[in-house]
Computed example of a mutant assay.
Amino acid sequence: MSVKRTSRAGTLLMAGASLAVAGLLAGCTAGGSESSTADNRNSAEENAAAGDTVVIGFSGPAADHGWLGAINSSAIAAGDSFPDVELRVAEGTNDANLQISQVETFVNDGVDAIVLLPTDGAALTEAATKAMEAGIPVINVDREFSSPFAARATILGDNYGMGVSAGTYICERLGGQDDAVIAEIAGIDSLPLTQDRSRGFADALSDCGLSVTNRVAADFTVQGGEAVTSQLLSAAPEIDAIWNHDDDQGVGVLAAIDAAGRDEFFMVGGAGSANAMREIQSGDSVLEATVIYPSTQAADGIAMARLIAQGKTMSDLYTPSVPYRVVLDAPVITADNVDEYIQFAFES
C-alpha cells in the first residue's frame, strides 16, 4: 500500500488539469454553445459582499486545551469578520447534556444555522438531527455525528493524514536506515482520532521499510506527556526519531527530554502550536517539525454556515452548492516554512 504524500507541485498540476477538463466540459454542448455550469457559481466578490443578516449559533467544548481554545477564539473572530453575521456563542462545555440543551435553545430561537463541535459526536447526533428536521442547517466540526442526516456539512482535520505526513517526513530523513529506532508518543489510545493518527504513521513508515519500535500513550496534557516520555527514554537508550501526536502534551515531552539530557534524535510534533513553532525557529531543539491539525476548523464552519444560510456557493468550485464534506490538509511545518504558518498557530 503506497501512502506517499503528493507534492505541492504535483497537486497544482493535477488541479490545473482538472480545471482544464472542467473548462472543456463547460464549453462543449451539443449546440456548441457555452454550458451554464460556470454561471451557477458565485464570484469571490459576490460571496464577500454583505447579504441578508444571518444568525449563527456556535457551540464547542470547554477550552481546557490550547487547540480547543484556538477553535473557540477563531470561530468568534470569523463571526466578527462578517458584517452580515450575528454569532451567538454558547458557553464551552464538556457536558454532552448541557451541549444538547444549547442546541435545543438555538432551535427554539430560530437561528439560521448552527456550527457545532460536539463534545461527543454520537451523543449530539439526535439533537443535531432535530435541528436539521426543523430546517436549520448544522455544520459539524471535527468530531463526527453518527448519522449522515445530522449535518448539512462536515468539516474535519485529517487525523490519518497527520500520521502519513509525520511518517513520510521521518522516512525522508532516515531513508535507507533499516535499523532506525522510531518512537511514537500518542494521545489517548481509546479515541478514534488517535487510532487514525497511529494507523497513518505506521502505513507511511511501512512504505519506506521502517516501523515503530517504541510506543507510549499520554493524555493530551503536559503532565501526561512528561510522565510517559520519561518512561520511554528509560526504556530506549538509543532513538533516531520521535513522533509526538500533540504539541500541547509536547511541552511535557520536551521537558522530559531536557531533564534526561537526550539529544541524539529529532522529533516531529503534531497540531501546530505557537510554542512548537518557536522551538522549530530556534534551531536549538530536538523538535524540528510539526504537523498541522487546523485550529481554524470552526472558523471555516462559520464561513460555510454563512454561505449555506445565504444560498451561496463556493466561488472556486463549479458545483452549485457548498460541499457536504471537507477534509483539511495536514502539512508538515519545518524551518523552511514556519514563518508562513506561525501566524495561524495557537498558544499551548
Rank of each mutant, 00 (worst) to 15 (best):
I292W: 02
S59P: 10
I302E: 03
M304G: 01
P61V: 04
A309Y: 10
N72S: 12
V54E: 03
G92D: 06
N108H: 13
F220D: 10
I114E: 04
F346C: 11
R197C: 03
Q195C: 04
G209T: 09
W243H: 14
D316G: 11
A335N: 09
G66F: 04
S33P: 02
G301D: 03
V181I: 15
T105L: 10
R306A: 06
G32D: 05
L233H: 09
A271W: 02
A122E: 15
G175F: 07
L12W: 08
Q249D: 03
Y160A: 00
M162G: 12
A22N: 05
S211T: 14
E172F: 05
T11R: 12
S282Q: 03
T213H: 01
L174D: 05
H245P: 01
G57W: 00
V338M: 03
A128G: 04
F82N: 06
G57K: 01
R262H: 09
T125V: 13
D158V: 02
A96P: 11
A183E: 00
R199N: 11
T213I: 06
K130F: 04
G250W: 05
R278F: 04
Q102N: 15
G51R: 01
D339W: 04
N214F: 12
A217D: 14
I292H: 01
V338G: 03
A260N: 08
S18V: 12
R197L: 04
L13K: 11
D316C: 00
V115K: 01
R41F: 06
L117M: 13
L205Q: 01
A276Y: 05
I182K: 00
M14N: 07
G209M: 07
D120T: 10
K130P: 00
S7F: 07
A90T: 02
D263V: 10
R199G: 06
S81Y: 11
I100F: 09
A276I: 03
E34H: 08
D203F: 09
L193C: 08
